[in-house]
Design a protein around this nucleic acid. Structure first.
Lengths: 246, 246
DNA sequence: CGAAAACTTGAATCAATTCAAGAGGCGTGG
DNA sequence: CCACGCCTCTTGAATTGATTCAAGTTTTCG
């Protein structure tokens, strides 16, 4: 099995064979499986491992006192959760599965060793953190300033383009194995309104979402509705430049 | 002048005299002043320097096509903007001043040298990045899931507690040198509604904001209204632990 | 096959926006 | 030094986008 993290990081920087071996080893040492809708880490816990998602979808969320929750990220295979455990003692949010999920647990010490041994890996992981931050910023704009229609369309675009970048789009279709409630929790909207908005987009012929699969017949058209600009995903291979400098 | 960045980082980790000298040097090499309401960097630019704020307030924002904008962070003295310039080529957002501002420009190369020379400094800056991310996540919750009343109260609490942590609160009062429009742009609300909400909080005796100064006579009471929990600011001195490990 | 979860739709309600108009403060230039 | 224009703040009234409540349908899964 090709490690999806290696694949992702290589989009950014060249990794030596030693790097890859180290990563591959780290990613197979301790594999854990989770069912759908389970917490991987709860808010307030003190994590000791970093979770590398090998398969399935995960979300980052906070639960409020009144029962509502806000999903803050969707994490896909190859994504690394909680790099922050190095520095922040307690989780200020939770991670939960949206589908059955396989993760590799990488201990703090091991990751520390890897980072010490290899500055290139360090920077590759830093890049990962910064791209995540860029996505968070765009979500802030999305939730703060866009209409429901734009908001829904925008998030669907993001999910589509993120997957396209890692070769997970075929025939204008990608996976979307989440519920409308979860989409609503990510968008700061009610589930009912998300449902109505999806219908609008559907009857307009912009999307076709069923069987956990999202089809976007004309991505440019949906992007126009969403006023979506993929720049913030930093999908261009900026590592070329970086690599030359090191 | 005591460098506010050193002060902040020392809350997290111990810095050697050499570290401090280096930082102090970096922070005085190239000083630039800006007027109120000026862009420090525009969206799309390719920055070459990191900006260290020495005095004044700055915000991070994105402007939308329809003219509305979303402010994504408030940056105070000691805050470092754009650590991401190392890795992301183009700015996917802009930085603007909210008051007259003094900035130290630190060149990419110099910062690179500093990071190479000192892993402790690297981690201290990484911590800075992660705390920023934690604040972004909380903003997402705030904008996505809280009522206007809670939202306004929550942001005021954040601003108050952040300043308290660096000794900028006296007699339950701190600086708040921004306009209601800017507050609205940060909260994803209209300026009119922010105005009404502030009035509510004012007549309830929870806040007193005038002359660019915010007074919160009973912070616990306002925090209760906002359902504010300062954990996400990671103000506790977690560096103690970290320092022991290195 | 039956129960639970997910989706769908309508109707009533509400929170927040928009529009509009006026008051107050500030800086600049005549 | 006053007048003018601009920005900020304030408030009311009308409107709207989104929520809530409620009920029914479809899908999923054990």
């Amino acid at each position: 099995m090709m490690n999806p993290l290696i694949r992702k990081l290589e989009r950014f920087t060249r990794l030596s064979d030693a790097d890859k071996r180290l990563l591959q080893q780290a990613a197979t040492a301790r594999i854990v499986n989770y069912d759908t809708h389970q917490d991987i880490i709860a808010e307030g816990e003190e994590p000791t491992d970093v979770n590398l998602i090998l398969g399935g979808w995960v979300c980052r969320y906070k639960q409020l006192a009144d029962g509502s929750r806000q999903i803050m990220s969707f994490l896909l295979p190859g994504d690394l959760c909680d790099l922050n455990i190095f520095l922040l003692r307690r989780m200020d949010h939770a991670l939960a599965t949206l589908t059955p999920v396989t993760v590799a647990k990488i201990s703090r010490d091991l990751l520390q060793q890897m980072l010490n041994a290899d500055p290139r890996l360090t920077r590759a992981l830093w890049w990962e953190v910064l791209v995540t931050a860029a996505i968070h910023r765009e979500w802030l704009v999305n939730i703060g300033r866009r209409t429901a229609r734009e908001r829904v369309a925008h998030l669907l675009c993001e999910i589509y383009f993120r997957q396209e970048a890692v070769g997970r789009v075929r025939d204008a279709r990608c996976e979307l194995p989440i519920t409308q409630v979860e989409l609503a929790d990510a968008l700061g909207l009610s589930a009912v309104h998300v449902n109505r908005t999806l219908r609008e987009l559907r009857v307009a012929g912009l999307i076709d979402w069923r069987d956990k699969t999202l089809a976007i017949p004309d991505p440019a058209a949906l992007a126009a509705v969403a006023r979506f600009d993929p720049d913030y995903l930093h999908l261009d291979f900026e590592g070329e430049r970086f690599d030359a400098e090191c």
